[in-house]
Amino acid sequence: MTKENAAVREAGAQFNLSVMSDDFAEVILGALDAVETKKVWMKTDDVATAATGSIADVFDVVKAIYLHAAKTGLHVEMSGNIVLGGCNTGEDENDRKEIRLNEETSSQISQQAGCRFSIYPLGEAGYIEKITKSVEKLPDYGVEVSMAPFATRIDGEVNDIFKALETTFTEIQETSAHVVMPFTISCNSPSNR
């Protein structure tokens, strides 16, 4: 797989947004409505939200949804998977344009959070070395890195966290046919007070 072909691959995300408040439905629906999603296919049901599109567009939308919920000051958590390969693989012309429809708004929201994630290049020999090299680069994105059970933990500003996640995912997928990145991000937790 060439880097040029890898850059236009389609990714998918499935995630749950949890808001620890009595008005959770309004916050979740408000976040979904506030985000520009025309560059991704998206469906929300009573279990999860799914989105597919270019890697850049999927990360743009997922980050923006999280930030719109998080800016309420409520304890907000998002857990999900971002995947590449299998039935989600294809080409997406949008990625070639690199226009992130939510970037301007997202960059104006500042929110501290903690995130745990793992990344799995499936069916690949030597995957541990590949993962280790990516994890070693994480501090370059302005996040604090520590090890957590079964995962890597990164703490910092949400925009920086998603930049670190996206860059790691993008680098791993350049030479991997199938990639899975489970993640959980949480902000405004009472356990931090």
Rank of each mutant, 00 (worst) to 15 (best):
D95G: 14
T72K: 07
L138F: 07
E104P: 03
E93Q: 06
A25H: 09
M78Q: 08
L67S: 06
I28T: 13
G114H: 08
A69W: 10
H75D: 13
V145W: 00
S118D: 04
A48E: 05
C115K: 06
E36V: 05
C87V: 04
D22M: 07
G123E: 00
K137Y: 03
S107L: 14
V143N: 09
S134W: 00
A113T: 13
N88D: 03
T89V: 10
E98G: 07
N94W: 14
T37Y: 02
I65R: 10
G85C: 07
G30W: 08
T44N: 08
S21A: 15
Q108T: 14
L84C: 06
M78P: 07
I119N: 01
P121K: 04
S106M: 08
L122K: 05
T49L: 04
T132Q: 03
E144R: 15
D46V: 11
R100V: 09
A31C: 13
A56D: 10
G53R: 10
V47K: 00
T152E: 04
A51M: 14
A31D: 11
N102M: 11
L67K: 07
L67T: 10
Q111A: 14
E77G: 07
H68N: 14
T152P: 00
A64D: 15
G30Y: 08
M20S: 08
L138H: 04
V62R: 02
V76S: 13
D95Q: 09
E144Q: 13
M42T: 07
D140M: 09
G123P: 00
F117H: 07
V47N: 02
I109D: 07
L84P: 02
Y141F: 15
E93L: 14
D140T: 02
L101K: 08
I119A: 01
K137E: 11
I109L: 14
A31H: 13
H75Y: 10
S146K: 00
